[in-house]
C-alpha cells in the first residue's frame, strides 16, 4: 500500500493529475468569489451597530480575514510538505512546499495591506506595533526568507532541505499569531485587535466571509498546482517522460 502511494506521488504521475485539477479549481474559485463578493456588498447592512458601529469600511473584512486565515493555513501546509520531504526524501513533497510559498506570501501581504486600509478609518492608524500586526509581519518575512533561501542555493536538493528547516523553525509564528489575540486571558494580550468570535458575527456577514475564505482556498489550490507543474517540468527536464510529453505536444 505504501508502495502505491509513492508511485502516485511521483512527479510524472502527478503532473497530468494537477493539470486536470487546475481548471476545476478555477471554476469553483470563480463561483465562490462571485458569491462572496455579491453577498458581501449587496446582502449585508451598510453600517454596523452597537459598540462596534463601523461604517461601510467594515466590508474589508470579506478579504482581510480570509487572506489572514490563508496566510497562516498555507504556512502550515508548506511546513507539512517540507517535513514530509525531509523524512521520506520524496521529490514531489518538496516541490509542493515550493509551489505553495509564493501564494502564501501574497496572502500574507494582502492581510497586512487590507488591514492597514481597514485600520485607518476604524482605529485611526494604518499601522501599529500591535502584537497581531507585528507577528503577521514576521510571518511575511518568513515566507520571503524561505523563497530567498531556496533560490540562493544552487543545488536544488540542498536548497530544499535548508529552506525546509527554516520553514519548520518559523512554524513557531503560527501559534503566536493565533494566541496574540485568542490567549486564555484577554486582559493579558489586550491590543487593538479584538478577540475573534464567529458567533458574534451577523449571519450574512459570516456567510460572505466564509465564501471568500473557501474561494481563496481553492484559488490557492489552483495557483499552487499551476506553479507545481512548472517546477516539475524544470526539475524533470532530463527525464524520458518530459521528452515524450513535449514530443507529443500533449497539453495535459
Amino acid at each position: 500500500m505504501a508502495l502505491n502511494w509513492f508511485k502516485f506521488a511521483s512527479p510524472a504521475s502527478f503532473y497530468p493529475i494537477a493539470g486536470r485539477l487546475v481548471p476545476a479549481f478555477w471554476i469553483i474559485t470563480l463561483i465562490l468569489l462571485g458569491l462572496g463578493l455579491y453577498w458581501g456588498f449587496f446582502e449585508t447592512a451598510d453600517r454596523l451597530g452597537g459598540s462596534n458601529a463601523q461604517k461601510e469600511y467594515y466590508r474589508i473584512i470579506f478579504i482581510h480575514v480570509p487572506a489572514a486565515w490563508m496566510s497562516m493555513w498555507l504556512y502550515v501546509v508548506m511546513v507539512g510538505w517540507a517535513a514530509i520531504g525531509l523524512v521520506f526524501n520524496t521529490r514531489l513533497s518538496f516541490m509542493m512546499a515550493n509551489a505553495v510559498a509564493p501564494t502564501g506570501a501574497i496572502f500574507t501581504f494582502l492581510a497586512l495591506w487590507t488591514g492597514a486600509f481597514w485600520g485607518r478609518p476604524s482605529w485611526g492608524t494604518y499601522w501599529d506595533w500591535d502584537p497581531r500586526l507585528t507577528s503577521e509581519l514576521v510571518l511575511f518575512f518568513l515566507y520571503i526568507g524561505y523563497i530567498a533561501l531556496h533560490s540562493a542555493i544552487d543545488d536544488v536538493r540542498r536548497a530544499d532541505r535548508a529552506a525546509a528547516l527554516l520553514a519548520i523553525v518559523g512554524l513557531i509564528m503560527v501559534p503566536v499569531i493565533f494566541w496574540s489575540i485568542n490567549c486564555p486571558d484577554p486582559n493579558q494580550c489586550a491590543a487593538l485587535h479584538q478577540r475573534s468570535d464567529l458567533t458574534q458575527i451577523d449571519a450574512n456577514i459570516l456567510f460572505a466571509m466564509l465564501a471568500m475564505t473557501f474561494g481563496f482556498w481553492t484559488y490557492s489550490f489552483a495557483t499552487s498546482f499551476m506553479r507545481l507543474r512548472g517546477i516539475i517540468l524544470q526539475r524533470e527536464s532530463e527525464s524520458a517522460w518530459v521528452r515524450d510529453l513535449l514530443d507529443t505536444g500533449d497539453k495535459a
Binding site: 449585508t44 447592512a45 453600517r47 454596523l48 451597530g49 452597537g50 459598540s51 462596534n52 458601529a53 463601523q54 467594515y58 473584512i61 476604524s122 482605529w123 485611526g124 492608524t125 501599529d128 487593538l192 479584538q194 478577540r195 475573534s196 468570535d197 458574534q200 458575527i201 451577523d202 456577514i205
Partner: peptide, 18 residues
C-alpha cells in the same frame, strides 16, 4: 499625541443590535 479606537468582536447590523 495619538488616540486609537478599539471595538468589540460583534459584527451586527444596527437593527439586530438594538
Amino acid at each position: 499625541d495619538e488616540v486609537l479606537a478599539k471595538h468589540d468582536e460583534s459584527y451586527m447590523p444596527p437593527e439586530v443590535e438594538s
